[in-house]
């Protein structure tokens, strides 16, 4: 019995240490970043595009717009493709083929992001430069690369959501004469709605947080993009690019960028979790 208690205490300590790690990181980032945001002023920090650390200008608007543009683009590409794949794999394709394709898509998650970036630079960027114009390193290139990177997240969570819909719904619909496609869009997508929203939001969080691949293909120019062919710098790229030589206020400003990112991703994940919980409850018929 004494041994049991010892093990329980040990496991508890390990579990708590993970939590403590998160707490320490959070406190540290906010402690380093928040003072600068308030010193600069919320308006001059969030709504100014002047980022000149040497002159004491710390406006991150162009990077916020950059991050949002790239994330939105990634979701338009990856979200649509991922949801489409989930629909095909759960509703239309023979189960045996689906059980072969799903792990293959999930394998995409295991490829290091630098490889995606490299592929983007070598193949995608020249194509965009030659056929569409601009420098090639652009919002579009980053959106396509990120779109592929979020596919496994969006696809596999959407598949789980669609599979969690009770088969009796599907049978009821088919027995009323509905075709597979009618059943899918009139019933299955509605019944799995909250899980699909969770999949999209988690995908967005992943796109927003990705750094290496984006640095390699987005061009990193400090300007508000005028079209999808313009280069952009995202919040994450900014931190990674300048961390090496930043000191003093500049360093604080990078932490402040981190605070912004942290807050946005936390909000996304909280929304996604609450949707995911709703799906599980519905699955139990409550």
């Amino acid at each position: 019995m004494r041994k049991d208690k010892l093990v329980a205490a040990l496991l508890q300590a390990i579990a708590l240490s993970a939590l403590a790690g998160l707490m320490i990181i959070t406190v540290f980032i906010f402690k380093e970043g928040l003072p600068l945001i308030f010193r600069t002023g919320l308006k001059d920090f969030f709504f100014s595009a002047d980022w000149e650390p040497g002159k004491g200008n710390f406006g991150i608007m162009s990077m916020i717009i950059g991050s949002l543009a790239v994330t939105l683009g990634a979701m338009l590409i990856g979200g649509t493709l991922g949801l489409g794949m989930a629909i095909v794999l759960t509703q239309f394709c023979p189960p045996k083929l689906a059980s072969l394709i799903k792990p293959t898509i999930e394998l995409l998650a295991g490829i290091p992001s630098v490889v995606y970036g490299f592929m983007g630079v070598v193949t995608l960027v020249p194509i965009i430069r030659n056929y569409l114009g601009g420098p090639g390193l652009s919002v579009l290139a980053a959106s396509i690369v990120l779109g592929i990177m979020v596919l496994p997240t969006v696809t596999s969570i959407s598949i789980d959501a669609l599979k969690a819909v009770p088969r009796s719904y599907w049978e009821g619909s088919v027995a009323l004469g509905a075709t597979r496609w009618q059943t899918t869009h009139m019933l299955m997508l509605k019944a799995a709605r909250s899980g699909i929203v969770a999949a999209i939001i988690l995908g967005m969080g992943r796109a927003l947080g990705e750094t290496m691949a984006v640095i390699m293909v987005a061009g990193n120019a400090l300007e508000v993009p005028g079209s999808v062919l313009d280069p952009v710098r995202t919040l994450t790229s900014n931190i990674a690019l300048e961390m090496g030589y930043a000191s003093g206020e500049h360093r604080e400003a990078l932490f402040a960028t981190g605070v912004t990112l942290f807050a946005v991703i936390m909000i996304f994940n909280t929304i996604a979790l609450s949707f995911a919980r709703r799906t599980i409850r519905q699955g139990r018929g409550q």
Binding site: P166, S168, Y169, E171, G172, S173, V174, A175, L176, G177, A178, T179, Q182, M186, L187, K190, A191, Q282
Partner: peptide
Amino acid sequence: RLRRRVGMVFQRPNPFPLSIAENITYGLRV
């Protein structure tokens, strides 16, 4: 058309997770 002429009621009630009215109009939409 066959499934319209031959309707089916299942062992466990399986209303769709929609409103009462939408459950009835489902077949009309089909």
